[in-house]
């Protein structure tokens, strides 16, 4: 199974980490896409480190980083600076999608 997590707020970091770790721990693939206020979490080490977990992919909406003034400096290159295209891919390819 593949789980998609759409992160559009910056309030739920603990849940995002917990659910990602639990799903990956059970052998599920996880795709995370951050947009809107959610891109603020890119500056949180706990969020920016999620890509290190096996079968976890992280991408974000570049446009939202401009809107919210979030710096992309120093982000790991494994975190894909993308667009709503990446959200479309996540929704298309995931068996379940949750929003946090």
């Amino acid at each position: 199974m593949k789980l998609g997590i759409l992160v559009n707020k910056d309030k739920n970091l603990d849940h995002i980490i917990g659910i990602t770790e639990a799903a990956a721990g059970k052998g599920h693939e996880v795709a995370i896409f951050a947009m809107d206020e959610g891109v603020r979490l890119l500056r949180e080490p706990g969020f920016a480190g999620l890509h290190k977990i096996q079968d976890v992919a992280v991408s974000f909406c570049d446009h939202s980083t401009h809107v919210f003034g979030v710096s992309k400096d120093g982000l790991p290159e494994e975190i894909l600076c993308g667009s709503q295209y990446n959200n479309a891919v996540m929704n298309h390819d995931s068996d379940r999608v949750i929003i946090l």
Partner: peptide, 18 residues
Amino acid sequence: DRQAEAFRMSVGLTILED
């Protein structure tokens, strides 16, 4: 609540013909 972003996202979700 965040209607502009909801609409923007909806437009983007059409890219893969869903």
